[in-house]
Design a protein around this nucleic acid. Structure first.
Lengths: 107, 107
DNA sequence: TTTATATATTGCAATATTACGATAATAAAT
DNA sequence: ATTTATTATCGTAATATTGCAATATATAAA
């Protein structure tokens, strides 16, 4: 099939899965790490740094934006991408809650 | 293509991506949560609980085992699956390190 | 030894993901 | 207005993932 049966799982389970999926690609991990190191990040810089084609980077940025992990501010003809810190922290907390509650019930 | 260019990323980036990928499916999240709630977990119980076919559950368990998130002890003709607590904690720490170091450099 | 039960593996169809070339869209500079 | 630079979108090919039926394997019970 290839299709996940999201309807048989609850909202929390699906939400966690979506977050993990966005983070499940080394290019996106590398993009996040690179963005966090720069004062102002421009997509084309990311293309040079990562070593993937510009459309590919653009697509990965879109996926990171889909869960608000990053935000992009338009500066003239460039776009400055930044980590969305409140969301970043929120997601970190969400994942920690998942890890803590799951292990606390463990046999 | 469909193939991730792992060779252009470093070991840490690929390792994080693999962990996130294993966790990026609601069925596997649900399995982990269910396993953690039971004293002794058997695959067939999981099949009843989750609502996916037995081969599908077996495949998901295999993926969870691939990064040692769970361990399965054979008890007669049944298998008792448990969260692998040391690995669980190790991965939680790894993810927190990623979240903390990434956000600390943020603009 | 046969039968029943529990789990794993194989093979396959449907869908998703990754990556990129071509092209479009947008805005600054000339 | 045209050119240049930057990013986004579209279309497509290659590969990966999800899920299940059929089957295999393994162990306990009869």
């Amino acid at each position: 099939m290839g299709i996940t049966k999201t309807q048989i799982f609850n909202v929390e389970q699906n939400k966690l899965a979506v977050i993990f999926k966005v983070l499940s690609n080394p290019a996106r991990i590398a993009i996040l790490q690179y963005i966090s190191q720069q004062d102002s990040c421009i997509c084309n810089d990311i293309v040079d740094e990562i070593g993937l084609a510009q459309p590919t980077i653009s697509q990965h940025l879109k996926e990171l934006k889909s869960i608000d992990l990053i935000k992009g501010e338009i500066e003239g003809k460039k776009v400055c991408y930044c980590i969305n810190l409140p969301k970043w922290t929120e997601i970190q907390t969400l994942l920690n809650t998942f890890f803590n509650t799951t292990k606390s019930n463990c046999c």
